[in-house]
Amino acid sequence: MTKDMSLYWKKNLTYMVILLAIWAAVSYGCSILFVEQLNAFQLGGFPLGFWFAQQGAIYVFVVLIFVYYVLMQKLDKEFDVNE
């Protein structure tokens, strides 16, 4: 792998780690580990932790995939490896 390519790969891994950290935070953090603490707050008629577990986390999942797509589109162009 040329030097350029290892930088490309490193940036890809950085994006991945950050997005997966958010993925873990909303699903395992907000929806399971801290659900009881968050349930002390209300979001309209939802206890907040309950909302994350049955709605919010799923919305975040969808957004994460599209964000990764956009980031990688830019990265592919920057390093001239796009199709």
């Binding site: 997005l19 997966l20 993925w23 699903s27 986390a57 799923i58 999942f61 994460l64 995939i65 990764y68």
Partner: peptide, 10 residues
């Protein structure tokens, strides 16, 4: 649903 994030990224 969460598995699709793993699929898309990994």
């Amino acid at each position: 649903t969460g598995g699709y994030v793993l699929l898309a990224l990994l």
